[in-house]
Design a binder for these strands. Sequence first.
DNA 1: CTGGTCACCTGTGCT
DNA 2: AAGCACAGGTGACCA
Lengths: 218, 218
Amino acid sequence: MLRKHTYADELRQGLRRGRGMGARAQPTPSWAREPLFEKAVTPSDVGKLNRLVVPKQHAEKHFPLKRTPERTTTTGNGVLLNFEDGEGKVWRFRYSYWNSSQSYVLTKGWSRFVREKGLAAGDSIIFSCSAYGQEKQLFIDCKKNTTVNSGKSASPLPVVETAKGEQVRVVRLFGVDIAGVKRGRAATAEQGPPELLKRQCVPLPHGQRSPALGAFVL
Amino acid sequence: MLRKHTYADELRQGLRRGRGMGARAQPTPSWAREPLFEKAVTPSDVGKLNRLVVPKQHAEKHFPLKRTPERTTTTGNGVLLNFEDGEGKVWRFRYSYWNSSQSYVLTKGWSRFVREKGLAAGDSIIFSCSAYGQEKQLFIDCKKNTTVNSGKSASPLPVVETAKGEQVRVVRLFGVDIAGVKRGRAATAEQGPPELLKRQCVPLPHGQRSPALGAFVL
DNA sequence: CTGGTCACCTGTGCT
DNA sequence: AAGCACAGGTGACCA
């Protein structure tokens, strides 16, 4: 019902980039970005939980949250963060803190990102922000896992929207599309490989910096 | 940090009984209690579901829940109930109604109870309350199942905390402690015996009474 | 109704 | 060894 954030922000965001979704402005070059941290996503991060756990240390360092000390409302302390991907597309995620599990999470909007990027357990996401400039911008990028068990039975395939809005899964072998499977309901089976992925999170070099937040919020 | 339920409640509860966890006050004698009902726990009750289904009839008779018809908050209709066990230890459970399953359940805190009591499928739990007194107190007690398949392979043993906070499993034969096994990780195997336990719930005699709730909440 | 979102919860492994 | 971070869950709610 009372959606707090309407298209006002969308417009503000879109206009700053010159164009909306259609014609893409040139993506921000990597040399203009400052890496923050990287995380290898877990099965839960890309599964039906529809959330990404942001490692606490990096969350508190780079994405500090107003810790409303006195319980103003029970609605929580969530904010909306905008991230730009490698193609210049902007993703908005809800970012909040879960008291019960004492962890920071990206929730709303995350599942769409997972689906459209074809993100699978073991892949990595890399957070960065603009190195220079007054209005700091956040970035998110994917790095597909290239180690052995990439060809597991139920490994999620990238999902691409066709012109008609159809969603198909894409299988490429040496760059050639192999299968174009129509997408039904989300796969119920989870728990991919037995997992030999333990150390998922890596702090990146290129200058440790203080909170990257501020202008990004909302 | 900002734990909503701090030690305030704990203290309030503890002080009323004269002593906290350490030196135990004398347990409330059974003659001062009024039995409410008994349930033989199911595999689900002691399994990884982390909840106890309270038979609806007894739930509604003894533990009525304010059915907040108008959604005041999104926090739901749960309350926190304090139960005292045979040793005078107080257990706090979250008690709520699940619309999805149309059932009353004890959730938060229940798994700890199961673990520390070594509760197994087929065992019974007995609910009672103080027969006299202004501030009514709730009680919960276990009755181990003594029928045949008690010696199943992975039957959980009672877990007791030693003075140092160590946790050991207790095996008694004719009241004599047989084994004092240090407790490692929780056993992963679940779903105990194939179950021939159907009629699990028994209303107890000693005077059927109306709602036992009121002063217990929180 | 169904899927997405949200705020909870817990066991486990790592530190 | 004890605490904590978090992976993997839950039900409720809502659009």
